[in-house]
């Protein structure tokens, strides 16, 4: 290894050249041709409103997209116990590795953040949107709108976002549900917050005070498929 180190020192001149090459590298021009933006090709047909209605199932935080219908916490409990609790647990605590729905308040800054609807999710609309499109797992888009509101209400109830089991969730009452963690999200700020990771000439020699020391080993953790039966290193 020592032979290598000395040749690394000799290579310093080459590095300066490479650094210059980096600075001069052309900016990405972007691939997509601009020409066809002018005249439409006339391909495709008009989408009919009933076709759109069948597929347009998204719901936004401002409530746009909420379907007609209604359901109470009580009605939702029966649906939840039958169709959801098997994976998510009777109290939304999760069974096995399935997603947790409730609990975990004040854990986000801890060593073991628990990201439930109540502790982490920013918007109530995401819950009804997601249940509507993807749940129950393996039987997606099978709930009626009333069942959808009812089971969503029950999930909110598990998170103490609704306290009254007679509460009726509908497009109007939905707007009263706010999730507590909304303010703790911010847009991507890596370009600014991590600006020091852009550097003209990264360190090439003697970048550590002494020889690198091994501080952790994967084989000690021993969770890799196929190597599980192999011998431990130490």
């Amino acid at each position: 290894m020592s032979r290598w180190v000395s040749s690394a020192l000799l290579g310093a001149g080459i590095l300066a050249l490479i650094g210059a090459g980096v600075a001069a590298a052309p900016k990405s021009a972007g691939h997509a041709p601009r020409a066809e933006a002018a005249k439409p090709l006339g391909i495709g047909r008009e989408a009919k409103s009933d076709e759109i209605a069948g597929w347009d199932i998204d719901v936004r935080p401002d409530g746009k997209g909420l379907p007609p219908g209604k359901g109470t916490v009580r009605e939702g409990e029966a649906i939840y116990m039958q169709q959801c609790a098997g994976c998510h647990g009777e109290f939304g605590e999760s069974a096995g590795r399935w997603p947790i729905l409730a609990g975990g308040e004040n854990t986000l800054g801890s060593n073991d953040p628990v990201k439930s609807i109540g502790s982490f999710w920013p918007y109530a609309s995401t819950v009804i949107d997601y249940i509507r499109r993807a749940m129950p797992f393996g039987n997606a888009q099978s709930l009626t709108n009333d069942e959808l509101y009812a089971v969503t209400a029950y999930v909110f109830y598990l998170n103490d976002l609704i306290k009254d089991e007679h509460f009726e969730l509908n497009a109007n009452s939905f707007k009263s549900i706010k999730l507590p963690n909304e303010r703790n999200f911010r847009d991507d700020d890596r370009d600014v917050a991590e600006k020091s990771l852009w550097r003209k000439s990264p360190c090439m020699t003697n970048c550590l005070p002494g020889p690198a020391r091994i501080t952790g080993r994967a084989r000690v953790i021993d969770v890799t498929p196929e190597s599980g039966k192999g011998p431990k290193v130490e």
Binding site: M1, W4, S7, G11, I14, I18, V22, A25, M204, R213
Partner: peptide
């Protein structure tokens, strides 16, 4: 963010690097 301009390799755990 675009093209790869350069890759360096270390064989001593990041103490010394070569292109």
């Amino acid at each position: 963010r675009g093209k790869i301009a350069r890759v360096d390799v270390s064989i001593d755990g990041g103490r010394n690097w070569r292109p």
